[in-house]
Simulated assay, not measured.
Amino acid sequence: MRVDEVGGLRLARFGDGPRVVIAVHGITASLMAWAAVGRRLPDGWSLVAMDLRGRGHSAGLPGPYGLPRHAEDVLRVADHVGADSGAVLAGHSMGAYVAALAAARREFARVVLVDGGLPLPLPAGTDPDAALAATLGPGLARLSRTFATPEDYVAFFRSHPAFVNAWNDDVEAYVRYDLTGPPGALRSRAAGEAVREDGRWLLTEAEEIGAALTSITAPVSLLRAPRGLLDQETGMLPDELAAAWTARLPLLEDEVVADCNHYTILFDERCASLVAARLTG
């Protein structure tokens, strides 16, 4: 992994091939969400992941946030690394929505949406902040907590329903990368303000997301996890939602990645290998 920076955005490159994947992480995540996939790319490829503003080592970048702002940052990163129209653009979770917005503005060879990217309309009268808290659960709760030691933070993540039976070295590296603060008062690098602002945008701008999807001219692959953010049996993108959008978008190819949840689709060895193959195949 080689680290770089552009305009205050932290970047990491996995691999050294000339063919490039630009990869965008989720709402409370970091560039390390893509490390397991990046290491599994075939020869001739490299994966460039960034810490979105308000997360990881880009946490100090100011708002406003919102997914269109992140899409601008993604295109800035693409310019910085010399990614041309032959590059692949990928996003996981919220990052898939950011990727859709970016791909609506610029040509990529292919767009890969990993368990995200399809509009999730908010029912009338629902409070976006309450919906976000219910969806993310412990992923959001940790942003308001401090931890005495790195081991306490790791233990908190080990109890997360998505990871309790799926812990590995990649998950631990991802968790430790997210940690900052003084001894005795360690915390997540993710800024709560950024997460809340982005969550509100994601849940209230379904029409803009749909418009972006319909304007993408490149082939689009959707990789879905059958289980959800809390390892529940219903995934983030149910079959009915995927079927509606594959019927609407002739360039959208839908695939369910067996036996994974919203997070392990990127961390499990088998699943990360499959995602890497779909990015480059």
Rank of each mutant, 00 (worst) to 15 (best):
H160A: 15
A130N: 01
R76W: 11
D51H: 12
P161I: 14
P123N: 09
A59G: 07
V88T: 14
D73R: 08
P121Y: 10
R224A: 13
A12L: 10
G91S: 09
E208K: 07
G60W: 09
L279A: 08
D127T: 09
A33W: 00
L52M: 11
P138E: 01
H262M: 05
D73N: 07
L186P: 13
P250Y: 13
S215T: 13
V171D: 06
Y174L: 09
A185D: 09
S30L: 02
E253Q: 11
A103W: 00
L202F: 04
A211E: 06
G139V: 04
A141N: 04
A29H: 10
A148I: 01
H262F: 07
S215C: 05
V275F: 01
E172S: 04
S85I: 03
L11C: 03
F163D: 05
E172T: 11
R69D: 06
L11T: 10
R227E: 02
L136F: 04
A272S: 15
I265T: 00
D254H: 12
L67E: 06
A242N: 07
V74P: 03
T149C: 11
A96P: 12
V77P: 12
G116Q: 06
E193M: 02
A218N: 10
R76E: 15
D73L: 06
R158V: 05
L249S: 07
G15Q: 10
R76M: 13
G82W: 02
L136C: 08
L118D: 02
D51K: 14
V20H: 02
L251E: 04
F156N: 10
R69K: 08
R196A: 12
N261E: 02
W201T: 10
T135V: 09
V257S: 00
G199I: 14
A96V: 14
I209Q: 15
G63E: 07
G44C: 09
R10V: 08
Y177T: 08
A36V: 03
E208W: 01
L101T: 06
V195M: 04
L122H: 01
H92Q: 12
I216V: 15
G56R: 07
A90W: 00
V256H: 00
R76N: 06
A104Y: 06
G125R: 13
P123M: 08
V111Y: 05
P150R: 03
G281R: 02
